[in-house]
Simulated scan of single mutants.
Amino acid sequence: MEEEGLTYAQLIFHNQSQTSSSKTSLPQERKGQAPTKVKSKEVNSNPLWFLLAFIFFIISLLLLITIIALAITYSRASQRLVHEVLKNSNLTKEQNQMKKTLSLLKNARCMTTGSGSQCTSCQVGWWLYSGSCYYLSNDKLTWDDSRKNCSNSQSDLVVVNNNDEKEFLKKNIHESHWIGLANKEKEGRWQWVDNTSYTTTPKFSSYYKRINRDNKDCVTLITEFDYDNCNETRKWICEKKAQQLPL
């Protein structure tokens, strides 16, 4: 009986020991396996997160660079726009000023005719009147030398075609000036330098017709035409056509 009891007890103890051993070994194996699997996931997941973070950083950097570039471009474009606006504003002011100047020039230099406006101009130091330019000298020369001086300016001694022109000249001179009328080629025949006939122009006054004009074959003007010796030195008046303005 004791052997059977011991044997039975031993069997029960032995079975319990095996069962306990089995239960004890099973958690150990699971505990041993679980950390291995977790470590494997952590090792495998770290490079992925690093790659995603790096990509995000690159994208953010590119966006920042793009924003900065756009800001610089916008700033430069704005500056150019402001510059163009100011430039156009200055051009508009200059154009308006030119229009005003042109208007003043037209009023001073243009004559209205049946065919429209004719605008003329003279070089500095010359007087404009009725489509002609006049130069009143400050120096004094003989009649021949005065004519040569006019020729150097592509002009000639003035030809007084009518009384209006004569009055214009008289208002601007205060002493005798040589004009383009002479009696040098044929005695008693007065001729203008451009071959205009004396018979169609203003004449000597009756007073000057009566005075002695020996050796006085050239003519001056102060208040009226006057005979004078061609070798005397006088101031002179040059005349030439005014320049047409392209208006």
Rank of each mutant, 00 (worst) to 15 (best):
C150L: 08
I12A: 12
V159M: 10
S137K: 01
Q16H: 08
L63T: 12
A182D: 13
W143I: 01
Q118E: 14
I68Q: 08
P27D: 00
K148L: 00
Y135L: 08
Y207T: 05
E29L: 09
K99T: 01
E2N: 13
S20N: 14
G131Y: 09
T223D: 15
A9F: 04
E224R: 06
E239V: 02
K171N: 11
N90P: 04
S146I: 05
S176P: 10
V38P: 01
I68Y: 12
W126H: 05
Y8F: 08
N149W: 03
K41T: 02
H174I: 05
L157R: 08
R189T: 09
A69P: 04
I67T: 11
I58Y: 00
L52V: 13
E84K: 09
L70T: 01
K209E: 15
Y227Q: 07
N195G: 08
Q79M: 06
K184P: 01
Q123T: 13
M98S: 06
I12V: 12
A71V: 07
N161T: 00
S115R: 09
T220N: 13
R109T: 14
R213M: 09
E167H: 10
S206N: 13
N231E: 13
S197Q: 12
L52F: 11
D144T: 06
V85L: 07
P202S: 03
Q191F: 04
D164A: 07
C122N: 13
T24W: 01
V82G: 06
I58D: 07
L136G: 09
V85M: 10
S153R: 08
P246R: 00
L62T: 11
I237S: 08
Q79E: 02
L181T: 09
Y134R: 11
P47N: 04
L169D: 01
Q97K: 15
S197W: 00
L64R: 08
T113N: 11
S137G: 10
A182K: 12
S25A: 10
F204A: 06
F57P: 00
N229H: 11
A108M: 06
Y207D: 14
I67N: 13
K186I: 03
Q28D: 01
I237V: 04
Q191S: 10
V124M: 07
K203D: 13
T92E: 11
S78M: 08
Q10I: 08
F57E: 10
P202H: 01
S25H: 01
L136A: 07
K41V: 05
V160D: 08
T120H: 11
V158P: 11
K87C: 00
V160C: 06
R109L: 14
N152Q: 13
S21G: 10
K235R: 15
S103L: 09
E175V: 02
V82Q: 14
W178D: 05
D217A: 02
G188D: 02
L221G: 11
F54Y: 04
Q243E: 14
N172F: 04
K240L: 10
D144P: 00
F168M: 03
L63S: 12
L169C: 04
A53D: 11
